[in-house]
Nucleic acid binder design. Structure first.
Length: 475
RNA sequence: CGGGGUGUAGCGCAGCCCGGUUAGCGCGCCUGCUUUGGGAGCAGGAAGUCGCAGGUUCGAAUCCUGCCACCCCGACCA
């Protein structure tokens, strides 16, 4: 295996796949479009997942598991839903050597099977709200796949909630997109625009779709999480009704929301550089790698003794560290390897340091190297991890702002889009114009941000508008 | 599904045009010794149905036909 990655400036797509493979995050599976998530990549996903899971539970959600096989008839109950998903489904036609009476769809998402169960479980307003999440795999037979960003099978969570009123469902959908914003910005250090999708881009079967949209290193947008207000569409399709306090029969209101292993791709493309990955400390599998450097066994013994003292404290304070005392590889090799894997901090300790009661600390993001007295090590590491976390977010935010341009006419719009970047512009167009813009520029409306406080003129139609939209080419 | 590309050792490739004995190179792997502060050195070693199936030929990695797989770029999508 060669030991460096394609430069981002040379070929961004190749850089991405190089990093994924050389940082040992994932590998191609034997079936087209499938991905093996390797231990290091899975550890990263687990960290993201655990944070999200905690936030879900703190807001009253519980986990459950629904089957991956969905009867064909269920898929077909909600018209928009089947139109949106059926073409990209894997379908099981045989089981136990026999042709099945009814084909089974492998879930592309679980609304239908979950709502078929909710019909059984919801009878009264006392059963509401029902706030269930599941962490599962789903399958979508995509034409073109890319590791983490779009694979035939991927891991995600899908929350499915049932509510008594429209307002409650709306509140839930908004609450969850806010949780996704926090997950992206506060933990993954990935700034996002939060807003609503246009009709053209919303989920098949949703009334409203809310989204977080991040900018990747090549200035394309990544839809990183969505939350849908499903209204009564699925309740009606699956006939899920409840009795109100007033003994009136009403259809239930629903939401669904999800984030996937795509987030891993988002982290890679938000922070990575030509040396490989750069991971935000809060989600990094290892926050710190310790590399002892010795010349003989006696030195190694002394070093390892000091290292075990140091790690004792890290362990106590829940700093995720790894000691690389492998004897086969040279220090230089290890430096490069762990840089490829994006470990936020590197600690070097050798005989010279031991004599001076110090260590060398190197930041992955800036490359800054400093000598730290061992007695101060713990507090310095703690502060540095926080600082790296903040600085990664700030840097990503600056990058995004630098490449987000306001435009007032279509000519400027086209220039910006073809050079790469987000366009932020007043919008008063409709779906037809949106489609035309997409055809001509490949850019779509990523979202209409929640924060709207200005009046202006639509860049395309020239009509007065109070609505700013974010346009970009996307993954 | 359209366009392009690639299938030869675990990985990356050369050889193919112009058929010829034992199919090479780099990295990795194994053993030993010496090394270790930015991708170590030397010596020895293991490892290949040349993507698959037919065909042409005395002889095919190489020529012909068909098929398959994967990657990249588009249309579709988390």
């Amino acid at each position: 295996m060669s030991i460096s990655v394609t430069k981002r400036s040379e070929d961004y797509a190749r850089w991405y796949t190089d990093v994924v493979q050389k940082a040992e995050l994932a590998d191609y599976g034997p079936v087209k479009g499938t991905m093996v998530i390797r231990p290091y990549g899975y550890a990263l996903w687990e960290n993201i997942r655990n944070i999200a899971d905690r936030m879900f539970k703190e807001t009253g959600h519980v986990n459950a598991y629904f089957p991956m096989f969905i009867p064909e008839s269920y898929m077909k109950k909600e018209a928009e839903h089947v139109a949106g998903f059926a073409p990209e489904c894997a379908v099981v036609t045989h089981g136990g050597g026999k042709k099945l009476d009814e084909p089974l769809y492998i879930r592309p998402t679980s609304e239908t099977i979950i709502w078929s169960m909710y019909k059984k479980w919801i009878k009264s307003y006392r059963d509401l709200p029902l706030l269930i999440n599941q962490w599962v795999n789903v399958v979508r037979w995509e034409m073109r796949t890319r590791l983490f960003l779009r694979t035939t099978e991927f891991l995600w969570q899908e929350g499915h909630t049932a509510h008594a009123t429209y307002n409650e469902a709306e509140e839930e959908a908004l609450k969850m997109i806010e949780i996704y914003r926090q997950l992206a910005e506060d933990y993954m250090a990935m700034p996002v625009f939060v807003g609503i999708k246009t009709d053209a881009e919303k989920f098949a079967g949703a009334v409203y779709t809310y989204t977080i949209e991040a900018m990747m290193g090549d200035m394309k947008a990544l839809q990183s999480g969505t939350s849908h207000n499903l209204g009564q569409n699925f309740a009606k399709a699956f006939d899920v009704t409840y009795l109100t306090k007033e003994n009136k029969l009403e259809y239930v209101y629903a939401t669904s929301w999800g984030v996937s292993t795509r987030l891993v791709g988002g982290v890679i493309m938000t922070h990575g550089d030509d040396k490989g990955l750069i991971l935000p400390p809060k989600i990094a599998p290892h926050q710190l790698v310790i590399i002892p450097i010795w010349r003989n066994d006696e030195q190694k013994a002394r070093l390892m003794e000091e290292v075990s003292k140091i790690t004792l404290q890290f362990k106590k304070e829940d700093i995720r560290y790894i000691v690389d005392d492998n004897e086969q590889n040279s220090p230089g090799w290890k430096f490069n390897q762990w840089e490829m894997k994006g470990v936020p901090l590197r600690l070097e300790i050798g005989p010279k340091d031991l004599d001076k009661k110090q260590v060398v600390l190197v930041r992955r993001d800036t490359g800054t190297k400093q000598f730290i007295p061992i007695e101060k090590l713990f507090s310095v590491v703690t502060n540095l991890l926080q600082e790296i976390q903040n600085s990664l977010f700030q840097q990503a935010l600056e990058f995004r702002n630098q490449h987000t341009h306001e435009v007032e006419n279509y000519d400027d719009f086209k220039k910006i889009i073809s050079n790469g970047g987000f366009v932020k512009a007043f919008w008063a167009g409709d779906g037809k114009i949106e489609a035309k813009i997409q055809e001509e520029t490949k850019a779509t409306i990523r979202c209409i941000p929640f924060k709207q406080d200005q009046d202006g003129v639509c860049f395309y139609t020239g009509k007065p508008s109070k609505t700013v939209a974010i346009f970009a080419k996307s993954y």
